[in-house]
Write a protein that binds this DNA or RNA. Structure first.
Length: 162
DNA sequence: GCCAACGTTGGC
DNA sequence: GCCAACGTTGGC
């Protein structure tokens, strides 16, 4: 029986952090086609998720870090699956990595597309206060991973707070 | 393969 | 700006 159905059971959910002073949700909103390569990730766990697990259409929370009110500010989706992060090849780029080259790229990125802003910022403080989210990586002290999975249950719960 | 030194993240 | 957490590097 050969038919495939992509439904919510196949949907993966993620959270990705960015500093709004560097690249915030407003910047994504203003990009051509509201789409942008998520470059500069230099962490193996995060890279592996982008390379192996993120699929077109996966939904992603946009999280603002290192700012006045850290938290989730919007939703984006995966628009292009993992491919080499060319900023690692450019000696003039802030994210240059001499150990990566086009023949053997070490770092990968995905393209993300703006979906919508949340009606309000759901702050880290609020996420931490919710027992339903106690398992969530982003609320654990010292977690510095910039790309992390979110379960379907966590996703729905967080949106219910909006 | 251990582990100390170092660098980065990111909340506060 | 401080500093805790923690990933990476490199000497041995």
């Amino acid at each position: 029986m050969a038919f495939e159905l992509k439904d919510e059971l196949d949907m993966n959910y993620w959270l990705m952090k960015s500093e709004p002073d560097v690249f915030g949700i407003h910047d994504l909103y203003q990009r051509p086609n509201q789409t942008e390569p998520w470059d500069g990730v230099r962490n193996y766990q995060a890279r592996n998720m982008m390379r192996d697990a993120m699929k077109i259409g996966d939904q992603v929370f946009f999280y603002h870090s290192n700012c006045d009110e850290p938290g989730i500010v919007g939703i984006m989706e995966i628009a292009k699956e993992g491919y080499p992060d060319h900023t690692a090849f450019d000696p003039d780029d802030h994210h240059f990595d001499p150990k990566s080259n086009p023949e053997k790229p070490r770092w990968m990125m995905v393209d993300v597309k703006f979906v919508r802003r949340l009606s309000r910022t759901i702050s880290l403080k609020e996420l931490k206060a919710r027992p339903e989210l106690i398992e969530m990586a982003v609320v654990r002290p010292g977690n510095r991973l910039s790309v992390m999975p979110v379960t379907a249950t966590e996703w729905e719960f967080i949106l219910s707070l909006e």
